[in-house]
Nucleic acid binder design. Structure first.
Lengths: 203, 203
DNA sequence: CACTAATTTAAACGTTTGTTTAAAGTTTTT
DNA sequence: AAAAACTTTAAACAAACGTTTAAATTAGTG
């Protein structure tokens, strides 16, 4: 995980971990400095303010979050395979970073549109030509004719929610961490089966 | 929405609105008092502390949140119909209270198990005999044989996520509020079709 | 009306917050 | 090696925080 040993990188790494698990308002500058093993003033020496550091972390996390998705979008394989791999990779990514979806949703809701536009994610998605592939697949009657937003919602709902709602589902069903992990492995199969079956009814 | 005109109720109502939209750490006692139109000290006069008031709000919201679900569980109708109605009622409830799922998930993750046990939700679900109905439906080959946790995850994922992830999906797709609302109406139909088709393959 | 209890307010409490300052330490440059 | 620039620290800053206090106001009771 540790990419760099510079002071700046130490602060950013510490901030990333703490911001993701506690949110912007849930932690203090001193807590970040302590986690990085240094003085509070250094946080503002390298990054102008707590808010500025936070914006940098959010951008970084968003980039990492979308990168894995866009990589799959770009790959030159049939849409059905791509759908399977997407679900697979999402569960893989989220198993490693289970707190990221909740972090993004909660903290992105506070930001305005201009902040999001700076990230330039939409363009990257467009360049992946995934929309064209879906349109083509729907035209030849392979994929069910559903608008792109709903497809996105179906995929993300079934991939992200199990990680987002982990504490709630664990409480309701009295499941320990390792039990919930096992549940997720099973659930991924159901999700794949259901989504493939629905989006590609002929297969 | 205003149920009562007593000072205590005013504070609780104000606290509920602010806590739900900003979270525990995202607001101050003075902000709650101002929203309720009174002095800060009254918050601690009627409710011991900010934390205590918060616990009361969380409990109240959780109760309201689960009540609508359990009502459907209890009703004496076939499981397929119950599934349709469940999705319908969830979308209806969440359209009115779109911030509640995110609130519950975020803030419940900070609480420990003992807090949840006080709410006594598990017992209410058990009394609804929904598990027995599912088991029976699976036994006669009507419902696909899937464990109860995954069924719950499938239902909740596809109902809650579209509301939880609203800001993110809106940003990615450049959708205004009213456009997203229309999207949700369409999406609910897809979700219903997909889930019914998957859970009850013979129909 | 007088008296008591409950309610509401303004003010202050000690902490903690994000941020800044100024000095000390370290590295780089000349 | 001296000077300049960069890095790190301890200390302090004002502002905001949750909470408490004590006085003022209102409501209830005989």
């Amino acid at each position: 995980m540790v990419k760099d040993h510079t002071t700046e990188a130490k602060i950013k790494d510490a901030a990333r971990n703490i911001f993701i698990s506690k949110g912007f308002n849930g932690c203090t500058s001193r807590e970040i400095a302590k986690e990085a093993g240094m003085n509070v003033a250094l946080v503002n020496y390298y990054f102008k303010s707590k808010g500025h550091l936070f914006d940098i972390v959010v951008s970084s996390v968003m980039k990492e979050f979308t990168l894995s998705m866009i990589d799959i979008f770009k790959s030159n394989i049939p849409l059905i395979n791509k759908t399977r791999i997407f679900i697979d990779k999402e569960y893989e990514f989220l198993s490693k970073h289970p707190e990221i979806p909740n972090f993004i949703i909660t903290e992105l809701g506070k930001k305005d549109k201009s902040f999001f536009e700076l990230l330039d994610i939409n363009n990257e998605i467009k360049e992946a030509k995934i929309f064209e592939q879906i349109e083509e697949s729907q035209k030849i009657g392979e994929m069910r004719k559903i608008d792109i937003v709903s497809i996105m919602l179906l995929m993300m709902s079934n991939c992200h929610f199990p990680f987002i709602a982990k504490p709630m589902v664990q409480m309701i069903n009295s499941l320990k961490d390792d039990e919930y992990e096992k549940q997720l492995v099973i659930h991924k199969q159901y999700v794949t089966e259901m989504i493939i079956g629905y989006l590609f009814p002929t297969k």
